[in-house]
Amino acid sequence: MKVLVPIKRVIDYNVKVRVKADNSGVDLANVKMAMNPFCEIAVEEAVRLKEKGVVTEIVAVSIGPKTAQEQLRTAMALGADRSILVETDEDVQPLGIAKALKAIVDEEKPELVILGKQAIDGDNNQTGQMLAALTGMPQGTFASEVNVADGKVKVTREIDGGLQTVELSLPAVVTTDLRLNEPRYASLPNIMKAKKKPLDTKTAADLGVDLTPRVTTVSVEAPAERQAGIIVGSVDELVEKLKNEAKVI
């Protein structure tokens, strides 16, 4: 069976985010970029399913700038067989991405789409659910366990009160949570091999999709800084402060 893994190029999670002085956004100039961590988990899950013999082909896809080729090459170094870049310099938003992905799904007809539950830049947590709605597929979001058997997929989901397991008919969309797996590192030979794997480039116009943003960013500010308080000398002093100064106990 074929699995589609949409991925996103984002600021590296180790980079400290700085808001631009003019409050127009976050400073991304000369900042290290990487594959979104939740997307790495999605690629890893697809590769594990292939290693188990459940999946026969993994197609990675990204909707973004030309430079997102780097992340697609990384996905192929990790085990994706080929990839598709829908190239755009637009500020892509979840609904537009989901529409572009739907067009890819219509062409590729995967039985499973595995993607990260959210990207660490916009923190939207929407794309997988939107793609599922647009394609009429069921969804298993925030997955911590995925089992494919007998034309169905069982997904254990991380919910607020604990864990929930749902069974979905295929084709289905799965979004990954942190504990689904621990992604591997790409080996040097695999990085070299990935350079020869096919990478198709398309445009939104090729797919007949409108990526115009529906939400505009008015401004971006740094969050209010919390001031450090005092260091107390003893438990007694702490109790006294909490009772008489903060009045919280």
Partner: peptide
């Protein structure tokens, strides 16, 4: 913006062909 709301709301938005403003 609980795991229930995050799960279904983007589906609703996509079906209505509107963006979602999260959290």
């Amino acid at each position: 913006a609980t795991t229930t709301g995050k799960n279904f709301a983007p589906r609703t938005a996509a079906l209505l062909d509107v963006a979602q403003v999260s959290e």
